[in-house]
Design a protein around this nucleic acid. Structure first.
Lengths: 159, 159
DNA sequence: TTTGTAATGTTATACTATTGCATTTGTTAT
DNA sequence: ATAACAAATGCAATAGTATAACATTACAAA
């Protein structure tokens, strides 16, 4: 995708998580990495809402599910999920969001609704290109651009 | 400025901080807000390096200067300095950098060197515009874009 | 000088993330 | 199969970042 998407409130999470899981399984097989039960469980928790989820939120949910775990467990799983592109880190919120798309290695831009907490994704190569070019003029070699846009989503604008 | 800048290692901090202080004084007078000694002291500390500075780094420096303070003091000053545009928050590092420029209310893009820790600024209206436009197509009304680019600066590239 | 607001002080605590080391699990080669 | 190795997990402690709640002081305008 080159345009944008923002989750609708009436979204069918059930189906959406199922799709995410299939995506994850295929991706990990192809990459030759292990999607363990724990990692999958944590991915499901993060993917079951389209809002930014903190590491300790994940822990809480796990506790309710009877899977008690230490923080480091969640952080390790998150590191893994981020490394394979199944989760994005949201620096400005110290939180995480599941990635429902395949971006390859293209950087992503996040839209964060201040009102409902929902998070959407954009994939704008033009933005990435413009950043690389401008940075390059200053002799700066770009590694990874973090682009997080706060604002108000369509649904909350209307309300 | 519309192009970019990245601090040179051989930079003259002394002069640079003096300029920052003048800038801050004028800006606060114009805005009708109080640049107290404490706020100024903290601005100087942050502005005396062109690397990302953590809140607790500031505290350490203050302690060495004999000005003991509680974390909340620093965070309050930082909130103020950010609100008037004298400091930028670097979300991806949980750190801060003094702003030596006048951006008006234009969003800024930060360049963060992984090697030396130096931080530079860009002001690229085109990037901001592209983000607003793409977000707008998804019905998203942009408030504040956070753009932080990690990479390697010219000086460190050469080395 | 009173009066109200902004700024600061003080203490405690909440929230986020990592380190170090022991143990288990899964994979590969023999 | 099983030995041997690497990856993943468990566990406990602790480091690092940020805010809450409430008391006090400093400042500016009436």
């Amino acid at each position: 995708m080159t345009s944008g998407s923002f989750p609708k409130p009436e979204h069918d999470h059930q189906r959406c998580v199922a799709r995410l899981v299939r995506h994850a399984e295929q991706l990990c097989i192809k990459a030759g990495v292990r999607l363990t039960v724990q990692r999958l469980a944590i991915l499901k928790i993060i993917g079951s809402s389209h809002k930014a989820t903190g590491a300790y939120d994940v822990l809480e949910v796990m506790a309710k599910q009877g899977q008690r775990a230490a923080p480091v467990t969640v952080y390790r799983a998150l590191d893994f999920l981020i490394s394979v592109g199944l989760v994005h880190r949201i620096s400005s919120l110290n939180a995480f969001i599941a990635c429902h798309h395949s971006h390859g290695s293209n950087p992503v831009q996040l839209l964060i609704c201040k009102a409902c907490g929902g998070v959407g994704e954009l994939e704008l190569p033009a933005v990435t290109r413009a950043l690389k070019e401008a940075a390059g003029k200053a002799g700066f070699s770009v590694d990874e651009p973090v682009v997080e846009v706060t604002g108000v989503c369509a649904h909350c604008c209307a309300a």
